[in-house]
Structure formats: C-alpha cells, structure tokens
Design a protein around this nucleic acid. Structure first.
Lengths: 130, 130, 130, 130
DNA sequence: GTGGTCTAGACCACC
DNA sequence: GTGGTCTAGACCACG
C-alpha cells in the first residue's frame, strides 16, 4: 500500500525543497514510519499534496534511488528498498555529523575557542529543552 | 591607522565570499583586533590580499555599512564605527547561536538524545583539531 | 501574477539607478499598484524593460529584500512580502519627510522666512506642472 | 584684514566637503559677515582650521573665483569681490530653488499629489519651528 | 589615492 | 525559466 506522509515544506528558509523532501523521507524510514516494501506516493500525487513542482519531487526521488533507499517497481511505482532502514539511520546521523562539523568550522573562524563553543551549545540545548 | 588582517577565504564551501569577508571583519572587531575609528584596508588592497574581485570586497563592506558597523570617510576610506564592538559581539554570538540551534533541532528531529549530540560534537572537534 | 509597472529612470540626476528602482517599487506598493503576494517582474525582464543591466535591478531587489519588502520564492521569482504595504507607506513618507526637512533647514539657514519658502515651493510646482 | 570664520564641516553627511565650504562662504557674504574687499583665510590656514585637506579648500576657493565671488589679489591672497554680496544672495536663493525643485520631482515620482506634498512641508515646518 | 556605480558576461543551484 | 554570486573592467566624484 501507499504510505500517507505528513511533510512540511518551507520554500523560503534557504534549504532546497528537494532536499527537504528527501530528508523527510529518510527520516520517516529511519523512524519506522515508512517500511521496506511500501510504496511512496507517485510524483504527481506528492507534488500536489505538498503544493510544489513535480520536478522537485522527482529530483528528491531520483536522489534517493541513487542512494539505494528507494527503487522503482516496474509498472507500479516507487518503493522503499529492503535494507533501507539501517541505511537511512546511518545517513541521518552522517548528515547531522556534517552539519555539526560545518558549524564548528564557522564558529572557529569567528575566533571562538572550543570551550566557548561547547558552552553555547549547552546553553542552546537548555533553551529549547529545559 | 589601517589594520593588518589575516583572513582565510574558502571559495568552495557554499558560503558566499562576501559573507565570509563580512563575518571575519565582525569577528575581528568583536575580538578587539580592529577598533572603532580604525580604517579597514582599502577595497583594492583587501581584494589583492585575498585574491578576489574588488566588487566582492565592496559588497562585504557595504553590508557592514548598512549594519552600522563600518562607515565611509569621504575620499579617505572606510572606518570602524564607534559602538561597533558591542554590536559585533552580539552579531557574532547571535549568528553562531542560530546555527547551533538549527543543528540541534535537526539532530533532535532525528531522535538523537542531547548526550549523543554532545558526543558527536566532541568527536568532530577532535577530528579537525586534535 | 506578475505586475505591470511603468517606471521612469533618469540616469543623469545623481540618484543611483538602483535607488530609483527601489523607490519606485516602494511607491508602487504603498499606492496599491503592487500587492502582497504578487511577483515583481523578473530581474532580466525588468532590466530589459528599463534598458539597464540586470545586476542593477538585482541590487535594487536585494536592498528591498533586506528591508523585508520583498522576498524570493525559490526558483520561481521575487514576491512582495505580506505586510509590505504599511512598511512602504511609512518608508515613503519618512524618506520624503527627511528630504523636505533638510531643504527647510537649509532655506532657513539662508534666512528665508517660512512664507518665502512656501512661495518658492509653489512657484516651483507651477513651473514644472502648470 | 583677514576674516575670522566659524564653519562646521560634516564629513559624513554626503555633502561634498568643498561644497560645504563654498556654501558657507557664500552664506557669510550674503549675510554680511564677510564683506567686499576683505581677505579670506589662506588655503593652508583654512585647511588647518577646519581640519580638512588643503586641496579641498583650494577647490572651494577656485569654484568661488570662477563665480566671481572671490578674486585673487596678487601677492597678498584671496579677497571678496566687489558686488559679491548681491551675487551671493541670488546664488543662495537659486540654490535653494534647485533643491526645492529636486524634492518636488522626487515626491511626485513617489506618486504624491502637490497637495499632499504641501501638507507634508507645512507639517515639517511646524515640527521644527512650532 | 579613496569608495561608488554601472555594465557585461560567466557560472551555479533551484524549480 | 528563476535568482545569486563572482569576475573584469570602465567611469565618476572626492580629498
């Protein structure tokens, strides 16, 4: 059966829309909301649902197919590959790792010491999750 | 007098060059390496130093003028505004804080605990700065 | 939908072209000729229309984005922000008010009475707009 | 004898410094603070007094000489021409007229009616001179 | 010498 | 198609 997904797309926060779609699919698979063998919505359907351009959905799907997370099932659509769950979990933490690394580089460019950076992080963590 | 600054520009990390220049000036002011009343290097000089186009430097400077961090002294150059230090300190920590908060939100969305996030951060810090 | 605008650009009055473009967009929004959510003409289209360089248009648009008057819709164009109308009205009257105040100060410094100033103004108005 | 003048120069308000010097000399002559036959301070002296570049003073003087307001007295310096007072008075009001015209054009470009413009002017007049 | 503006044209990512 | 960035080079006003 086709999964029912609830994504939120933000077209004005700088993150590419196709990237948002791909991330949210990965996240859904990693969290078990979407399982191996299930079909994802068709490109047209998904595009209509999210009110975005079909090309954008298509690009997200293609990227996930290249990753082996999704695979086309001839004549019926696009499905979650077997073994996708583990892969998505690792992709997710790898992605986070990259963004963390990026922030660290930027903070160091701003001449902050690692101690100061850690303090800011802990302060931010408390702020949103007291 | 004109400050001597040492910037490193990375033209392939996605962050616009003019933005990198602006940030590093803000950092220099926040850290006291550049003080109110001092002149920043001339557009042409800075461009030569960083091996980038003068227009790019100019754009960075203009952005900081719009922020009130720099101001042009007609016919003579561009100087750090009075009161820029406090402003730059707050700009710097606000900017980094935002990026940190953003990463934390993403990490939590991926169902990582704060402890796990912190471990990833420390691991990343060691990786590039052992 | 994209608005149809009629601007006049004067390249020899000392006012930067990008500033003239920005002002006239602000005016159009303030006057209701351009409404929140509407797209402004594309950079290339506007440049062609006004016979100026796309970069110049781009600079005008960027300035208005920094002001929060416009915002880019990724991959599709640039739109008038919600709440722009009130902002533009206040920007417009503030800008003109400042210029008026400036002239009045200068006129008074030249020891003209307010009555004399008003007479000059009315005479100037008739001169170009009989 | 050489006149003692009290000028205030603002190097960051967009008005060229040489223009400020010239205007203030014209104004002083029109108001009778500086009379035909009197010497103006030497370029060097004036530059030192105002803490500006001698070239700038020189440019202001040259402009006024071209206007016939000042004239060089061989071997002794630069003096106010005879007949300068009337000329300066007319220059002053002509300059004001131009600036008024300019503001009117800009206000009209902002789609304000002449009535609205007049109202803004009267409001500004009251604001600073109640 | 300085900054500011403008043009021309290239390349990129995104939709 | 869209905007964004960057380069290269010209011209101008100012000090």
């Amino acid at each position: 059966m086709t999964a029912q997904l609830f994504f939120d797309i933000n077209t004005s926060n700088g993150v590419p829309v196709y990237e948002q779609v791909a991330r949210q699919i990965v996240s859904a698979i990693a969290s078990g909301g979407l399982n191996a063998g299930q079909m994802v919505p068709s490109v047209r359907e998904m595009a209509k649902e999210l009110a975005i351009n079909p090309n954008t959905v298509s690009r997200a799907y293609r990227q996930l197919q290249d990753n082996g997370v999704l695979e086309t099932v001839r004549g019926s659509g696009i499905a979650v590959s077997s073994g996708a769950k583990a892969k998505c979990k690792s992709m997710r933490s790898q992605a986070i790792g990259q963004r963390i690394a990026h922030v660290i580089v930027e903070a160091r460019q701003s001449q902050l010491s690692d101690d100061e950076i850690l303090k800011m992080i802990q302060s931010e963590m408390r702020k949103k999750h007291p």
